[in-house]
Amino acid sequence: MAETKNITFSQATLEAMQEEMARDDRVFVMGEDIVRQGGIFGQFRGLPDSFGTERVRDTPITETAIIGAAVGAALAGMRPIADMHFADFMMVCGDEIYNQMAKVHYMFGGQKTVPMVLRAPDGLINQAAAQHSQSLEAIFQHIPGLKVVAPSNPADAKGLLKSAIRDDNPVIYFEHKALFNTKGDVPTDDYLTPIGKAKVVSEGSDVTMVSYSNCLQTVAKPVVEMASKEGISIELVDLRTISPIDKDTILESVAKTSRLVIVHEAVKQGGVGGEISAIVAEEAIDLLDAPILRFGAPFTPVAFARPLEQEYRLKPQAILEAIRKMF
């Protein structure tokens, strides 16, 4: 076993940036309030001390120019990391993301790569309400040319961020706000987590459950545990990369279990679960012993009041009850 240390998700992302910035001086970071504040969730704290405020830059409030400038800098040979403060603000720079960042390499015949990372803190936290709580990964999964990742733990957070920084394609790095302060064991050696590879977190024989990000920790894992007490063996797959999706790992698991459940925090309608369901239905419907189950948020914006935000969140108990009916 490689040696590990127990650090927070936030620290893991900081180490990834530190290591990659030390390794490659083309890597630089920009975003709002990352120098004096260390990022709104503290995920950049200390970085300017090591690399200075030229390479770790505070920007004006100007998401359009942050992403546009990152694309331009990437085209001119740099490897930017751009912070979006809250993933909800990505639509402010929608054009820069889906018409520029995603398209330049393909549209210009592969002449130039766009090696950049867009860090996007997402998800529900502290009743932050409609415009600061969203999970938007499905929108970007729909756009060819983007890679999209969403780690669920510190080890993957570090390994995926390092891979994203080294990747020659633009990578959107969704990091759930509730994960920043969670701790986990992270290898001490220099490692990468491959983009495009899901991971079987715990093996099982009756049901395949695909999940990712914070939802895997707070919803999927409790369901797996409760189910196992009732003798239902769930194989839990951490998707880790939303695009390109790792079909093989999902199909191999479904071949074993014959049942598929997908659980994510994002709105169910039009969500990543729909894509996974479609892949399995197209390629392996004859392997299934029960209809596919998808769990995601209701088709409403996130509401502020406590009971409303509570209602919006997935309930492990309800998922377990539905799984029982698969048999």
């Binding site: 009743q127 309400a129 409609a130 415009q131 600061h132 509401a303 502020f304 009041a305 409303l308």
Partner: peptide
């Protein structure tokens, strides 16, 4: 109706 909160 409690849907927005301080920022909304």
């Amino acid at each position: 109706k409690g849907k927005g909160g301080s920022m909304h």
